[in-house]
Design a protein around this nucleic acid. Structure first.
Lengths: 192, 192
DNA sequence: GTCTATAGTTCGATAGAC
DNA sequence: GTCTATCGAACTATAGAC
């Protein structure tokens, strides 16, 4: 019988959110179970549910946290002016961020559940938040911002499908263009 | 007690696939139930499972059918040369096609389940098929083809989130740029 | 070709102890 | 703050009749 560590509420919340991000990412919202999340977090299933009230609430918080990560990464990239155009800095920051496959995939699931009342609202808010950030804070014109998001959505898809690990030359070619030529960076992403 | 219609196997398969496309689209692979699909198709749950062997097989066939629809629409657009650049014709064909929200969403769910063995393989095959089609048959250069897919992925996300129905001016602006200026066409898409 | 019935699982959530 | 135990609901798949 292992001794389970007693943590302050805030830390426990964060550790559950981190575990849930991975599990929701791999299995989707409905496909993930609170028991799998509990195991990943090293606690009991009942405690996961009790901490967030319901599986849906937990998913919404996972999604909000992922959006928050993007905001933080983008703000840092905007501030760290190294002479490159801001769009390039944002792109690099994005690729660094989605090295965390869980964040990427959780967002993808969030976006594809737009018809669900609570989840859909969270998705719309999150997506618009990112759009406003790259437009207003990074200073991209609306068409540049839209184009930037489009490239990001292709990166999401390519990574979600694990095309960066595929052997076919066409996959390599597509991935290379999707990431703006820096295939190496994609390949480094752990295949978990 | 209603009298259920007896259909030839091929027609029944197609009617189940159509119903399943809608249900899988709205709820995702794991979130959809064979019972909901059965109700949508007007038959019994057991018959849905019996016809396709398993829920997973059914989903894979739904996804293949959706990819097939895109292939057919793109080939038609390539053949119907009306003077516009081929990328523009493909884009218009794509928007017409994803007016069927079920197809759009089923593909989105397919792409986000790349870690699943069978579903992931189907997703990679499907995505590469589309890439090769726009590159080899439409004749786009690799970077043009990649850019075309990126714009398509943004359209997917915007529609999945139902941003075309949102009131906020920022949503309107984003959707306008995502669809290349033709907001009206997006707005026409039934809000179901 | 299609149904009813149901077996066998699995899951989210709650109760209550420590 | 965290666990064990468990209820009740829901789901996929199978069996077997028509």
């Amino acid at each position: 019988m292992e001794t389970r560590q007693r943590l302050p509420a805030a830390e426990r919340r964060e550790s559950i959110l981190a575990a849930a991000t991975v599990v929701f990412g791999e299995r989707g919202y409905a496909g993930a179970t609170t028991d799998q999340i509990a195991i990943a977090a090293g606690i009991s299933q009942a405690y996961v549910v009790r901490t967030f009230g319901s599986k849906e609430t937990l998913f919404v918080e996972v999604a909000r946290r992922a959006v928050g990560r993007i905001e933080a990464a983008f703000r840092a990239a905007i501030a760290a002016d190294d002479g490159r155009p801001v769009a390039q800095r944002l792109g690099a920051a994005y690729i660094d961020l989605v090295a965390d496959r869980g964040i990427l995939l959780s967002l993808l699931h969030l976006f594809s559940l737009g018809s669900d009342t609570a989840i859909g609202r969270t998705g719309r808010e999150g997506f618009l938040t990112i759009y406003r950030l790259v437009r207003d804070e990074a200073g991209l014109a609306p068409d540049e911002a839209s184009h930037f998001l489009a490239e990001g959505m292709l990166i999401n898809t390519v990574l979600a499908l694990r095309l960066q690990d595929a052997d076919e030359p066409d996959a390599v070619e597509l991935v290379t263009h999707a990431c703006g030529g820096d295939l190496r960076k994609f390949r480094e992403l752990a295949a978990d």
